[in-house]
């Protein structure tokens, strides 16, 4: 048999792929096989059923996949929902937000009705306690904390030889101490 690609040399590499039940065969000579990336002693033949193809099977019968929602695109990466279904691959992190409702049925088919229960990256963790920490002192500083803050401010004012402001702060501290 001659190579299907160059039609000159004897075909030595025979590739049979079964993708979603469809069988395709390729017969190539050593040189053409090499050019087309089959230079692996048949090593990759076993992997021809690629993961995206398997995954797109999860999407294929979602009713929403068939609905006329094909023109929307993710503003960040430009992927449409249609493309995500076809390739089984989500375009970028923002696609998950953009197409959340439409992806959810497929995600639930894989994972069940689950919500993330694992680790959270520092960047996400850090934002939250910081926001909480910002609110807390404003809400409920104790008298002692107020005095400590004012004393620190007074010390700064003295160091800066801003005695008028230091005097005001001193009076405020006295008033607070009277309260306590």
């Amino acid at each position: 048999m001659l190579c299907q690609n160059c039609k000159k040399q004897e075909a030595t590499t025979h590739i049979k792929r079964v993708i979603n039940g469809e069988t395709t065969e390729k017969h190539l000579c050593t040189d053409c096989a090499k050019k087309q990336g089959y230079d692996y002693d048949g090593f990759f033949d076993d992997f021809s059923l690629s993961i995206p193809n398997i995954f797109s099977g999860f999407f294929s019968d979602t009713p929403l996949a068939l609905a006329g929602l094909r023109q929307d695109r993710c503003a960040t990466c430009g992927s449409s929902f249609d493309e995500i279904i076809r390739t089984g691959m989500v375009g970028c992190a923002d696609c998950y937000e953009r197409f959340y409702d439409r992806l959810l049925p497929s995600i639930q088919r894989i994972h069940g009705r689950a919500k993330h229960a694992g680790r959270i990256p520092y960047t996400v963790v850090d934002d939250k306690p910081k926001a909480a920490a910002d609110e807390k002192p404003q809400a409920e500083p104790t008298t002692e904390e107020k005095i400590a803050t004012l004393q620190a401010e007074m010390q700064k004012a003295i160091e800066a030889q801003n005695f008028e402001q230091a005097a005001v702060l001193r009076d405020n501290i006295k008033a607070l101490k009277g309260e306590a």
């Binding site: 992190a93 992806l103 994972h111 993330h116």
Partner: peptide
């Protein structure tokens, strides 16, 4: 978030 939703979560 992962390219393939089978790896979402952890």
């Amino acid at each position: 978030l992962t390219q393939c939703p089978t790896n979402l979560g952890t």
